[in-house]
Amino acid sequence: MSFKKLGLAALLSLAALPALAQTQTIRIAATPGPHAQILEAVKPIAAKKGLDLKIVEFSDYVVPNAALASGEIEANSFQHQPYLDNQKTDRGYKIETVAQTVNFPIGIYSKKHKAFDAVPSGATIAIPNDPTNGGRALLLLQDKGLLKLKEGVGFKPTILDITANTKNFKFVEIDAAQAPRVLDDVDAAVINTNYATQAGLDPVKDALTRENPKGPYVNIIAVRAEDKDKPWVKALVESYRTPEVKQFVEEKFKGAVLTSW
């Protein structure tokens, strides 16, 4: 090979190095189940944009924001805006939303009753014990005409805000992740979709009733405020909100999870 050709080969080899060097590892948190499964579908698309996604699973709703704020991860994808707003108010996190993702309409499930109207007066209902999802459960029951809540409570009503209880329901507040496990002990439970599917429940077939999917509870991708304008964030969002991921969600979850794009 001539020196001229050797020089050209060396230049081509050097030219290839920046593309490899640009590959960036992004640690992104999700709860087990649909959120993590969707990110697995995002992963190969993100790789083409130079992102190596490392999916970190947390089994509760509190740790992912704490881990993000402390720098243990670069992003998370597990929560809706009202929940993040509540966390920022309570804990002072400097975390920002960069994209909407999917919606998991929360539902009411029961092993003892086959229809929502069959849940009797005086029934015991389990609801999440965190302010946002507990409030979401109460708003769902109000929407179905079974409760009346104080005016102006927003997205975070508590059982203390109930002004009318048509069927005299008794409420048990539990950790959201534990809700499927108490179905044998209560008349019904309000369960977040990711925990329902993780427990083998089918939100479309098994839920007695579900919330309006066009409400404020579309899930989001969140990052630290200092990172929100960085190129990798744009690449992550573009990788998630693609036709390929939309098709995956529709085929995998069959209406239990709804895309926002």
Rank of each mutant, 00 (worst) to 15 (best):
M1K: 03
S2I: 07
K4Q: 05
K5F: 04
L6D: 14
G7D: 04
L8H: 12
L12W: 08
L14C: 05
L17N: 10
Q22K: 13
Q22G: 07
Q24W: 10
T25H: 02
G33M: 04
H35N: 13
I38Y: 05
I38P: 05
E40L: 06
V42W: 04
A46N: 12
K49F: 03
I55N: 10
E57L: 03
F58Q: 07
D60G: 11
Y61F: 14
E72Q: 13
S77N: 02
S77D: 05
S77Q: 07
F78V: 07
Q79R: 11
Q81L: 11
Y83W: 10
L84T: 14
T89W: 04
R91F: 06
R91H: 06
Y93D: 07
I95V: 15
A99N: 01
T101P: 04
T101L: 07
N103D: 05
F104K: 07
F104Y: 14
I106P: 07
Y109D: 03
S110H: 10
K111D: 10
K112Y: 10
H113F: 14
H113D: 04
V119K: 01
A123I: 11
D130Q: 11
N133W: 12
G135F: 07
G135S: 05
G135A: 09
L139F: 11
Q142C: 00
G145I: 09
G152E: 13
G154H: 09
F155D: 13
T158E: 04
I159S: 09
I159M: 07
D161N: 14
N165E: 04
N165V: 09
K167M: 12
N168S: 14
K170P: 00
V172Q: 12
D175F: 11
D175P: 00
A176R: 15
A176E: 15
A179R: 03
P180C: 05
D184H: 00
D185R: 12
V186K: 04
A189S: 13
A189W: 02
I191A: 04
I191D: 04
N192I: 13
T193G: 09
Y195S: 14
A196I: 02
Q198C: 00
Q198A: 08
A199F: 07
A199D: 06
L201H: 03
K205W: 06
D206L: 14
K214M: 15
K214T: 15
G215M: 08
G215R: 07
N219R: 03
A225V: 06
K228Q: 13
K230H: 13
V233M: 01
K234T: 11
K234W: 04
V237G: 08
R241M: 03
P243W: 09
K246V: 10
F248V: 14
F248E: 08
V249E: 01
E251N: 05
K254W: 02
L258E: 11
T259V: 04
T259E: 02
